[in-house]
């Protein structure tokens, strides 16, 4: 393994990242470095490449140029590296993507058991611990279809946490939810942030960004146009397109 976890090594380092879909360039020369424990919020208009960027971090998309180093391991064609990184990086999707043929508990136990080879009892204890943490221990024996959207998303967060990842990626975790369920999911994410998890969140929940983000990134046209701490980002952004975007999301 190429893990050289020297103290100065950031959790994530992206250098000159390019990504093409056919001839269409979705990412252009992205540079980003995330320290351990840092919380990054990514925003930007639809089609700006936010999903593409965070999906490159755990190789759901393959990049075409530049380097991605996660926890000291470079993402390349080495399958061993990809497996190692996926074990250490959790992801939460917009549409939950829970496994419908398994109960909530099984959803949380399967990966620790077959990927981390944990014994069943240990996997179950871990799963119950995290279900408690996302405040739905009583739903463990239900199937995903029997839960509300907000509950499903919290299960999805618990499922990712059961692998005990060092980095968590969120791709618009609340945008498929009814408004009254958004806060229950955000509360869980705020708690997670306060415990020191390294987080990269694509979201348009600017209140969440203000509360937990160390830095907010603004993307458009496959580029990072602006990168600043939240107070600076919301009050005195230099970029015209950022201001326009902010007036749209914050506006009314």
């Amino acid at each position: 393994m190429t893990s050289t976890n020297s103290t100065g090594e950031p959790a994530l380092r992206i250098e000159n990242l390019d990504k093409y879909y056919g001839t269409f360039q979705a990412l252009r020369g992205i540079n980003l470095s995330v320290q351990r424990g840092e919380k990054i919020v990514v925003c930007g208009p639809s089609g700006s490449g936010k999903s593409t960027m965070i999906r490159c971090i755990n190789r759901l998309e393959q990049h075409n140029g530049g380097r991605i180093v996660v926890l000291g391991t470079e993402l390349n064609d080495d399958v061993g590296n990809i497996d190692e990184i996926r074990r250490e990086v959790g992801m939460v999707f917009q549409h939950f993507n829970l496994f419908p043929h398994m109960t909530v508990l099984e959803n949380c136990m399967i990966s620790p058991m077959i990927v981390r080879k944990q014994p069943r009892a240990q996997a179950e204890a871990t799963a119950r611990h995290y279900l408690e943490k996302v405040r739905i221990p009583e739903q463990a024996m239900k199937y995903p279809s029997q839960l509300s959207g907000g509950q499903q998303q919290r299960v999805a967060i618990a499922r990712a946490l059961c692998m005990q990842p060092q980095i968590m990626l969120f791709d618009e975790p609340t945008s498929a939810l009814d408004p009254e369920m958004v806060s229950e999911v955000l509360d869980v994410m705020v708690t997670l942030a306060s415990e020191g998890m390294t987080m990269i969140c694509v979201t348009h929940e600017m209140g969440f960004a203000r509360r937990v983000a160390d830095r907010v990134l603004f993307m458009d046209g496959g580029e990072i146009l602006e990168e600043a701490p939240p107070d600076e980002f919301f009050t005195s952004s230099r970029n015209e397109r950022t201001r326009q975007f902010l007036s749209q999301v914050l506006g009314h």
Partner: peptide, 27 residues
């Protein structure tokens, strides 16, 4: 089977045969 199912399984670190046998085929 929704494409998100395989992506979720990949993101959880499952290998090809694990994804096929535990996630894709049962559904």
């Amino acid at each position: 089977v929704a494409t998100g199912q395989e992506e979720a399984a990949m993101a959880l670190g499952m290998r090809y045969w694990q994804r096929i046998s535990r996630i894709l085929l049962p559904q």
